[in-house]
């Protein structure tokens, strides 16, 4: 079953003077997912996000939000936390959040009610009357996060949301993201930090040099990048393995064991490998080498 999509881009092309920032990029973001938008610096992620936010328009292609072609009032259904973020330094925290919420279409009263909830949740009630410039960078990031999600958007776009947070606050934000997802929001998550992709994302898309090179559920992609290698820790000698099993790396551990990576043909059975190993060495541990997002990222980017 194809999940209902909240956002769809079709054949987006964006051309700057000499440089094509996006080349025929089509994406489908399923509703209720956390969608990792990955790619090296300058790949075109920000260009795509800006098009979705109607900050710029594509030269070709279409964007659909909830099945409808993008309209100006769709802005209210999107919350966007840009990578380059900032606040008005001379403005009070409370005033500023009220202003930003009203720009997103909330009335002052609605904004006030919602702000109260967030200020209680983050325990930051004392900040209301403070000038933004008196807050630390981490505190400002929190305010910005609140500003992004305050109007309860269906689609939340977070560009590097964890940069500038200490681990405790990063965790706090992570929990909020999961909470938002639970409440039905879809989150597009653009980042370089693969461990958070690993942890949070259901779907990923990878953009490299203006083109989409990977797209799909995280599981499927991992499957796709499987190398059919297994790791084993053992004592003994593995010099006489059958030629089908290829040792691709081997090194001694601290405690007189050896750790080896063994590749098997795609059609071979893992049981055969285990049996072969048991016949020859004393096995302490065994497992499949599942590619990390980091590996996949590097591989996908370098392949092209």
């Amino acid at each position: 079953m194809i999940p209902k999509s909240i956002l769809e881009t079709r054949n987006i092309v964006k051309q700057y003077a000499q440089h094509r920032a996006l080349d025929d990029v089509s994406l489908t973001v399923p509703s209720g997912s956390i969608f990792g938008l990955l790619g090296p610096n300058g790949a075109g992620k920000t260009s795509l996000i800006r098009i979705i936010n109607q900050i710029t328009a594509p030269d070709a292609g279409e964007v659909f939000l909830g099945g409808e072609p993008l309209r100006p009032d769709h802005i209210r259904r999107i919350g966007y936390l840009p990578e380059e973020r900032g606040l008005y330094k001379k403005m009070k925290v409370g005033e500023q959040l009220l202003y930003l919420a009203q720009l997103k279409g909330l009335t002052e009263r609605q904004a006030m009610e919602k702000l109260k909830i967030w200020f209680t949740k983050f325990d930051i009630k004392t900040w209301w009357e403070k000038n933004v410039e008196d807050l630390s960078k981490g505190m400002q990031q929190k305010i910005q996060f609140v500003a992004t999600v305050l109007h309860e958007p269906d689609l939340i776009i977070l560009d590097e949301p964890f940069s500038g947070f200490d681990p405790i606050n990063a965790n706090l934000i992570k929990d909020e993201i999961l909470e938002l997802k639970k409440n039905g929001a879809t989150i597009i998550f653009s980042t370089h930090r693969m461990e958070s992709v690993e942890e949070l994302c259901d779907h990923i898309a990878l953009i490299n040099r203006s083109r989409k090179v990977l797209d799909g559920p995280k599981r499927t992609i991992k499957e796709q990048f499987k190398t059919h290698t297994y790791h084993v820790e053992y004592q003994g000698s593995l010099t006489d393995l059958p030629s089908a099993f290829q040792v691709v790396g081997s090194k001694p551990t601290d405690d007189n064991f050896t750790r080896a990576d063994i590749r098997i043909p795609p059609d071979a059975s893992v049981n055969d490998l285990i049996r072969t190993l048991l016949e020859r060495v004393a096995v302490r541990s065994f497992g499949e080498n599942i590619p990390s997002m980091n590996d996949i990222f590097i591989k996908a980017v370098n392949e092209k």
Partner: peptide
């Protein structure tokens, strides 16, 4: 210039033309 150097402009621009 202030909006630009404060980097708030992208946030604002995502709600306002």
């Amino acid at each position: 210039l202030e909006e630009k150097t404060n980097r708030i402009v992208e946030v604002i621009i995502s709600s306002v033309k």
